[in-house]
């Protein structure tokens, strides 16, 4: 076992003190599309360093919630506070700069770029030079590129993807792409990390690796994590608290052992094929 994790040195700002109070406060948030209300009056809070899971049947509004936290969508009503900022009407790139990173349910990597370049894109906010300096490749630019490349290499080592470093991401197998996407989010040096179905479509071994990465990120770096996941076994094993959504509404919000026995939750999963997953708890 590593004594001090090399990532803690590479990603210092993940361990900076958080503002007082919850990391995320969703207050009566509603998101309506033409025809569908994806999120209905949802309220929840996520505490610092918590590993918070959001579960629910397909179409329950889990991804929509992530889109609200990260600014891809703005709530129709209600308010959203993240890391002490009112992000209700903020743009995604502004929210990202407050220290929020995320992965996507359907991998959203830059397929035409190499693994290293994808991770370097995660470092975007930590590179402070402008286009003019970039063209002249000043000493400051070179130093910034090298320093950030070192951070990227630390993440490459952590995720054990050294051999794929210079490969185009589009050519990589699915499981590796999932890792690279986690790496790109991690490269942002976030204080809040949103993971949308991080182990979907993975085999047992890949799932276990991913679970270890997630725990390391929380335990070693102290990053607050919200995770959407269908693998109930993983959720029950990892999560500190579980929010259950059904048809856009909150039906439970408690520690895993309580949520597991909640009649409303069991009812929501009953009849659906998802029941099998609930029973498949490891």
């Amino acid at each position: 076992m590593a004594i001090t994790h090399p990532l803690t040195a590479a990603l210092p700002s993940t361990q900076e003190a958080l503002p007082d109070g919850p990391v995320v406060v969703a207050d009566d948030v509603t998101l309506a599309f033409a025809g569908v209300v994806a999120v209905k009056g949802v309220s929840y809070e996520v505490a610092p360093r918590e590993l918070f899971a959001i579960v629910g049947p397909n179409g329950a509004g889990k991804t929509s919630n992530f889109n609200l936290v990260s600014g891809v969508y703005q709530p129709t009503s209600g308010s959203m506070h993240v890391l002490g900022h009112d992000v209700t009407t903020m743009k995604p790139h502004e929210i990202a700069r407050t220290g929020v990173a995320r992965t996507f349910q359907n991998i959203e990597l830059f397929e035409n770029l190499t693994v290293v370049d994808n991770l370097m894109l995660g470092r975007q906010q930590h590179l402070h030079y402008g286009a003019g300096a970039a063209m002249l490749r000043t000493r400051r630019v070179q130093q910034a590129e090298v320093a950030n490349r070192e951070v990227v290499e630390a993440i490459v080592d952590f995720l054990d993807i050294q051999s794929h470093r210079d490969a185009l991401v589009g050519m990589l197998p699915y499981g590796v792409q999932k890792r690279v996407e986690l790496g790109r989010a991690l490269a942002m040096e976030p204080k809040l990390l949103l993971l949308d179905e991080p182990v979907a479509g993975m085999n047992l071994e890949e799932t276990e690796d991913m679970a270890r990465f997630i725990l390391d990120i929380r335990d070693e770096l102290g990053v607050t994590i919200i995770m959407v996941e269908h693998d109930m076994g993983l959720v029950m094993d990892l999560a500190d608290r579980v929010l259950v959504l059904d048809f856009g509404e909150v039906i439970a919000n408690d520690v895993p052992s309580v949520v597991q026995r909640d009649p409303a939750v069991i009812r929501a999963y009953l009849g659906g094929t998802d029941m099998a997953e609930l029973e498949g708890t490891r």
């Binding site: 891809v72 743009k91 995604p92 790139h93 700069r97 990173a101 995320r102 959203e108 975007q124 906010q125």
Partner: peptide
């Protein structure tokens, strides 16, 4: 969308 999420 992914670009914006990177802070771009």
């Amino acid at each position: 969308v992914a670009a914006e999420i990177m802070g771009i």
